[in-house]
Design a protein around this nucleic acid. Sequence first.
RNA 1: GCCGACGUAGCUCAGCUGGUAGAGCACUUCACUCGUAAUGAAGGGGUCCGGGGUUCGAGUCCCCGCGUCGGCUCCA
Length: 663
Amino acid sequence: MTLTVTLPDGNALELQDGATGADAAASIGPGLARAALAVEVSHPEAGEAPELRDLSRPLPDGASLAIVTKKDGEKALELIRHDAAHLLAEAVLELYGGVKISIGPPIADGFYYDFEFPEGVTISEADFPRIEARMREHAKAAEPFQRRDVSPAEARERFAAEAQDYKVELIDDLVKNAPADRPLQSVSLYSNGPFTDLCRGPHAPSTKSVAALKLQSVAGAYWRGDSDRTMLTRIYGTAFFSQDELQQHLARIELAKARDHRKLGRELGLFMFSELSPGSPFWKPAGMAIWNSLTELWRKENLARGYREVKTPILYDVELWRQSGHWDKYKDNMYFTDVEDRPMGLKPMNCPAHIQIYNDERHSYRDLPVRYSEAGLVHRHEASGVLHGLLRVRHITQDDAHIFCTDEQVESEVVQCLRFGFDLYRLFGLQPRLELSTRPEQRIGSDEMWDRAEAALAGALASEGLEYELNPGDGAFYGPKIDLHMTDSLGRSWQLGTVQLDYSMPERFDLLYTGADNTEHRPVMIHRALLGSFERFIGIMLEHYGGELPLWLTPVQAIVLPVSDRFNDYAAAVRDELRDDGVRVELDDRNESVGRKIREAELRKVPYMLVVGEREQSEGAISVREHRGGDAGCTTVREFCERLHGQLYSPALKPRKTSERDA
RNA sequence: GCCGACGUAGCUCAGCUGGUAGAGCACUUCACUCGUAAUGAAGGGGUCCGGGGUUCGAGUCCCCGCGUCGGCUCCA
């Protein structure tokens, strides 16, 4: 009996019945047999997704297969990082008594394993060297990974005997969650050396593939992500096929840290934080220049798209928050105070405020859509442990807007929001990831309403041809939403923009408009923030540009550097001329050498350094030095201003003709 | 909020097992009058995060707060 499999090059390979992935690799060649880590198996005719399997498992007849080696990039790394997670658990169990193990998957760039250490035992990075040493011993020993399929009962008994409660719970859940018509027949156990784990696999043939490993950090993590359950100790690490690749990876992380907006903010004097107001940035003059340039962009672009700017209070009678539902749903994130014995709350969102404005007038269907925009300052009591520079603050300035429109207008309004958002992000060279979050368990409104709302959002995404991830059950309690996400320098994902459909607030606040039929109708609200918040957006943008912002956003666009104080007067005249021309320019007239002035301007990332001395003064000229570019030659102030003019404003901020604006 | 680590001059950091603080940069002053990434010299500057405790004596050890960092949970 033989079986036939298809190789990636399309050739068929005939093997003995019961042949394994390792046999397939060996029959292709001894080199491949040695390099093989796992095999990717798929049945194209059955439409199954490719499945990564151990080399030791028998191959199904008719399958397509690809032998995976370390040249297969992420796929291969994921495999050995999973191996490394087992090594970690193995080492920890040997070094510490009474440890309970839970789960240890590979993740982007590494792996982790979650443990419950006995009462009183804490792990810190100081413990890493000896854990790593033990892991390396086991890796060097080339312990084969052996898979064994056993009945759930046998596995359960085994882990119960070892008091591995988490494993027992996992097995019980596997049994419980199996479909009724297909009860769970077996679970797989993987052993390497003395260590055995409940594991789906696959693994490399032995631990020796983990040629380079490093433990990176230790953190708390709730069992099954549930904050009501035990907090386990999570150890993070990473692994590579060579020490070289590991070192390169660590160097990349170090490099990324140089782009951290918190570091840049301090170095460039953009903003600061004080213990006296946690989670609240203090904007320094240089940072405020960025803020104002961004605000200018925001204001012009909103006005150009039919938004009308409003400004609303931040403190309200709690009665408003009861009516809006925030008292019930959002109280824990709000700040409250008493004003002359009257309970008041700081707004965590702008919507109820904009609703007040909407309701101050009667509206005809002819008015709709009504679009109010506000650089709205909201306060949210974010848990102390989640604060993070500008990216997670308690004092948030949203580029907020609320659109009041008819049902029929919803989809086109959402499309316009998305286009607006992408126009903005494109300006900064950012490509946001999109998520569509649908109806949550806890929600208000009829199913028909949700059907319509979700269809409208999905329709808007489809009509724009946008790719997005579905995030079922994560919508707001009042409606589904589309979120725009970006990652920071260390790859952490942050939500920036959001477009949310809301049928609830209009009900709660009895919003109305008079229709063509002369009866009253309920408008729909769209909540939207595109940058998200100025704070978070500036943080992401700083990391994206590594602090070297486009000229129109740069706090100091040019700095005049007199060669000695004999030329300070001329330098001041140059400064004044540039300033009159709208350039954000500084003069460094300190009694210092040019070398020092240049060095410091370079460190401040000032795009243009204008050196003036004897020669320039006599010729009425300036010597231009570009940040990173070096000496760019001599020119006149006038020529220099003309050169800059195209860059002093963002492309979108350039004055446009009315005809273009209407297009 | 939870777990762990950390908190020393404006910044980056040193300070062994407890004996009342140090470097570099920054800052001030003076000299130099300077040509594309650091001129030289002198000087000033610290409630060692805050509060308790142990001790003859605490930056150092213990406890409680606060903040920051890395995660987890949450979240626009």
